[in-house]
Amino acid sequence: MSELMIEGLSATVAGKEILKGVDLTVASGEVHAVMGPNGAGKSTLSYVLAGHPAFTVTGGSVTLDGQDLLGLAAWERARAGLFLAMQYPTEVPGVRLDEMLREAAVAAGRDVDAVTQLLQDEAGKIGFDARFLERPLNVDLSGGEKKRNETVQLATLQPQFAILDEIDSGLDIDALRDVSRRIEALTETGLGVLAITHYRRLLEELRPDMVHVLVDGRIQRSGGPELADELESAGYGEFGTSQN
């Protein structure tokens, strides 16, 4: 059993305070949904956890089984067991998916051939076209293909915790089902998930243990899955903001 613990996390971007003390703990196999209006700091939270250099941590701590993550470079956090599925996966012309994952496997001390095989298996599981494995990363992929790509990588890299930054955006119904079912299955073998989303529909397949409402850089309320239903009908008005 592992634990990702976020305590009092504050962060700025370009001098502007976005996160104002976030507290959240995710354990292995759990799914925590983070919902909130635009501008609440949801994407910032995911980037700060993954170590994006544009964000400055101004307070708090993030630990994985007691190991400080904030002191690690982005790639070391990944090696420690963290994965970020991006809302808008970056196009990297000239770098192939399989090539990138082989480099990651070398850095993690994993068997490179086994990782390559796993990549092919995982692509097959969620209908990610095998020819994309040898094509430049995310280049000329549709929104849905990009999210399948993120999911294939998640399953291949086998992290302990995955942060999903609006993995449901830009997905059609079929892709949403394939992606969320695969991730749900991974939670059954111990993956912990922090799923940032605007919409409840992701959570129909990827069932949350906890739902957190992030508004104005803080978790304002936490509850069970029923909180997602409540937010869907009532919006974020009670938190002093309107959904936009």
Binding site: W75, R77, T90, V106
Partner: peptide
């Protein structure tokens, strides 16, 4: 830097 971060976030060391 965004391309680099994408690779880093998958566990690829910065120089690689």
């Amino acid at each position: 830097p965004e391309q680099r971060f994408y690779l880093e976030s998958r566990g690829v060391p910065t120089g690689r």
